[in-house]
Design a protein around this nucleic acid. Structure first.
Length: 535
RNA sequence: GCUCCGAUAGUGUAGUCCGGCCAAUCAUUCCGGCCUUUCGAGCCGAAGACUCGGGUUCGAAUCCCGAUCGGAGCACCA
């Protein structure tokens, strides 16, 4: 019926027929259905077993034939990249990978005052992009290109599309709210040019003048009425090569508008908080006769595990020693996740599966951890780590060596642990014991607890049968001559004893059984430091 | 106050443009089971959703109107 419109008018006649047939079919069993289907249309049986594959990955981009895609990630480097910035890196670079083209990282560092850039962060962004497999084809720094912006500003002034406004901020807002032009709007281009040259020469005080783009002062959306393009900022820029060279800085909508055109951007994906930017910048594009890139927007992403945090707030907390640094495992920075052993592929998959929706979302780290676990589980060697250790003496056996596999399913060899007459076990396991408890030390043997003070057990046997028969609990343990380990995790620190062999695992992800995955971060003579990845 | 978006299981997401193949996808979480040895990994299984109300239509998650809820912009921040 979908294909033959002329039959649609008969739809009402068909309904009772279908009802009768369905009633008849309902009387039969599933087996009868299958039998009949096999005779009628065997190919449909196959179809029943085929699982529907959802569209994986990102939605198709509207790409013009024969045109190469150019996309960008445009952060203000006023702090290190976080999980939030990562969406921009991954999604934009993924599209470029998919369609072929250029991925540009552009530093929108044109505010030396309120959102003052951080010198180290420029490197961090580039570095983290590379780590994420989003190698930029080009790196552009806005603060290097101020003269370019000045040139375009002059052109707009000449054309009568921009004016230097000397209104006080509040004053202007009042006029704007009632769709009234301010007295400076109708000044001649010549006079405006003179004001502008004075402005960039440093003749005016901060906040005394601003260059505005003429839009439509009576536009129904107040956000679009004559917006600011340049303002005066006397603070010096943190980049030494820029320093105090300029006292007039462009605002985002102007700088972004010019750069997106200059760099030949074909598509822009950004937060929906910047939806108005397109409309505002549209005026500039119209004045110059440029074509606006195609835009897509996404909503806010919040991680359940991380509350609101501002870069400036974090910076302060780090300076005060509340956090160990920008890679403190409690932080959602890429540097921290990396140190914890989160793999770039997991982050990419996480971001790509999340897609590009305009809904504001709140997602759990568990989803990212699950992706990471799939990557890390097959490559992580297994070891014993006993946190809050207590010693347990064993009687009735002599020194022995056990050789558990490094991995339960992958064949990667074995480790060796020598056990004499005692082991370390977790305090929380010890507390569940009572005299007479029969337990299994994983990959070692079965014992029966004979005393709690001091903690002591008697060797029973090494049989799996008795383990099953007695339904013994299986706990892990560590040799008494193990290595001291400190694990730094988002929830705090754990200290304990682990097998010595983890000293061979520097920078690798391992799994501490019954604890979780960790990345071995540093090793010295008497201590190993590990970063907790996830369980 | 003005303006602009959005709404599918606990959480994300596919499907919405172009109404029928949707008895609505996949993942995660949770629950249950399995494992000659991880209570935390792995494997298997199950549960769970179209915000609400009208309208159009033979037929609506899909189109239209309204309501509700949520978000954003109206900066000399990005």
């Amino acid at each position: 019926m979908g294909e033959c419109p002329h039959l649609r008018s008969k739809a009402k006649d068909v309904t009772p027929l279908i009802k009768d047939i369905l009633e008849e079919v309902a009387k039969e069993t599933v087996q009868q259905w299958q039998y009949r289907l096999k005779n009628l249309a065997p190919e449909l049986i196959e179809e029943l077993n085929v699982k529907k594959e959802p569209d994986k990955g990102l939605k198709a981009l509207d790409v013009e034939e024969g045109k190469q895609v150019v996309m960008r990630f445009a952060p203000n480097p006023n702090g290190p990249p976080t999980l939030g910035s990562t969406r921009g890196i991954v999604v934009n670079s993924e599209y470029v990978k998919k369609y072929g083209g250029k991925f540009i990282i552009r530093f929108d560092d044109t505010d030396p005052q309120t959102k003052r850039p951080m010198l180290e962060a420029y490197e961090w962004y580039v570095d983290d992009c590379k780590w994420l497999g989003a190698n930029p084809d080009d790196v552009v720094i806005a603060s290097d290109r101020i003269p370019l912006y000045y040139e375009y500003a002059r052109k707009l002034i000449e054309m009568g599309h921009a004016y230097v406004c000397f209104c006080d901020g509040e004053e202007f807002k009042k006029l704007k709210d009632v769709k009234q032009a301010c007295p400076h709007r109708d000044v001649t281009p010549e006079d405006n040019m003179e004001h502008w040259e004075k402005m960039i020469a440093g003749d005016y005080e901060e906040r005394s003048a601003v260059l505005r783009i003429k839009t439509d002062i009576s536009h129904k959306d107040p956000a679009l009425r004559d917006y600011g393009a340049f303002r005066i900022v006397r603070s010096s820029h943190p980049r030494p090569e820029i320093g105090s060279r300029y006292c007039v800085w462009p605002l985002l909508d102007f700088e972004g508008a010019i750069e997106d055109h200059e760099l030949g951007m074909t598509h822009i994906i950004r937060g929906k908080d910047l939806m108005d930017s397109e409309k505002r910048q549209g005026y500039i594009y119209k004045y110059f006769g440029w074509e606006y890139p195609k835009t897509t927007h996404w909503g806010r992403v919040k991680m359940h595990e991380f509350g609101k945090f501002s870069t400036s707030g974090l910076r302060k907390a780090i300076e005060e020693g509340e956090y160990s640094g920008w890679d403190d495992p409690r932080l959602p920075t890429l540097r921290a996740l990396r140190r914890r052993g989160i793999q770039p592929e997991a982050i990419r998959k996480f971001m790509i599966d999340m897609g590009v929706g305009e809904t504001d979302i709140s997602i759990s780290m568990d989803t990212l951890y699950a992706e990471n676990r799939k990557i890390v589980d097959p490559i992580a060697n297994r070891y014993f780590f006993v946190w809050d250790p207590v010693e347990l003496k064993i009687t009735g056996t002599k020194k022995c060596v056990t050789t558990p596999a490094l991995h339960p399913t992958e064949d990667r060899g074995r480790r060796e642990i020598e056990v004499t007459d005692a082991v370390q076990i977790c305090k929380e396991d010890a507390e569940k014991l009572h005299s007479g408890s029969k337990i299994r030390f994983k990959d070692l043997y079965n014992v029966e607890v004979t005393s709690l003070e001091p903690l002591q057990a008697q060797y029973l046997d090494n049989s799996i049968d008795s383990l099953k028969k007695e339904k013994m609990r299986i706990i892990h343990w560590a040799p008494v001559d193990g290595v001291v380990v400190k694990v730094l995790s988002p929830d705090g620190e754990y200290t304990g004893i682990a097998e010595k062999q983890i000293k061979n695992e520097l920078n690798r992800i391992i799994q501490f059984e019954r604890f979780g995955f960790c990345r071995i971060d540093t090793i010295d003579d008497n201590m190993v430091v590990a970063y907790y990845t996830h369980k």
